[in-house]
Amino acid sequence: MKPAPFDYVRAESVEHAVATLAAAGSDGKIIAGGQSLMPMINFRLVRPAVLVDINRISGLDRIEDRGKHLRLGALVRHRMTASDAVIARDVPVLHAAMENVAHLTVRNRGTFCGSVCHADPSAEMPMLTLLLDGVVRIAGPNGEREIAAADFLTGSLTNALDPAEMVTAIDIAKPAPGTGWGFAEFARRHGDYALAAVSVLIERADGAARNVRVAVMGVGEIASRIVPAEAVLEGREPTAAVIAEAVAALRDDIEPMSDLSASADYRRHLAGALAAKVIAQAWERAA
């Protein structure tokens, strides 16, 4: 389990990283925390010719409070996201989700942006980015661009980056004050990738749910918003019956896969059970 030979470049700046990727054609790869990339390289599932290390680029390791949204730089580690006071206060749903991400050593290295780039169908951060109207900020040979998370996450382990591009930061929206939230997941062991997870945001106005967002992971190709379930809840009071209706819509909408750890049937059941719980939770928390 040793990697095939590769060249290694320690990027001094974003421009340097992008130029090195461009020079490598399509054989370059960014390494951030390395927590997903290194196992794949060691199994020789990925064989980059050039590894571009962004860990020494200054300025990328910050969580910036920009009023209506937060900007998470490409070197923000899971540990920082999990312990950031502004996130805990303004985006509690993300704070709660981070509890479930991996283990201490992985959290010390792994990055938020790396997780979104890696786009594992069972990873928390892609789901949270979708839930929080994430915008992915990208640097490439022709300058910068921004794209919505939903357009960035194109499928399991794939994203919308061109070979010479890198993600410099991800912006996530702070939910409006008083927004109720819920997050629940089930994994075989604490810190494992989840078999299923659901996150929900609900605003409350005149006794009805507004701006409802429901996102799931682990039950499809990639994390996704469940628009039919949101539609069921939108503008209604989430009574038990309404929640059951939303859960049914959710179960209808997802296409879970069967694999070693869980069948599609079980995943579908699980997603519904978790959704019922977190929708109720979010509604209760909504002010």
């Binding site: 075989r188 750890s261 069948s263 049937d265 579908r268 059941h269």
Partner: peptide, 22 residues
């Protein structure tokens, strides 16, 4: 006794659960 095995074992015996799952 994995969650999957328990799910498969228990599900047919729980009417209420079955309804939920449909």
């Amino acid at each position: 006794a994995t969650p999957e095995r328990l799910f498969q074992l228990i599900r047919p015996h729980l009417n209420t659960l079955e309804e939920n799952t449909k």
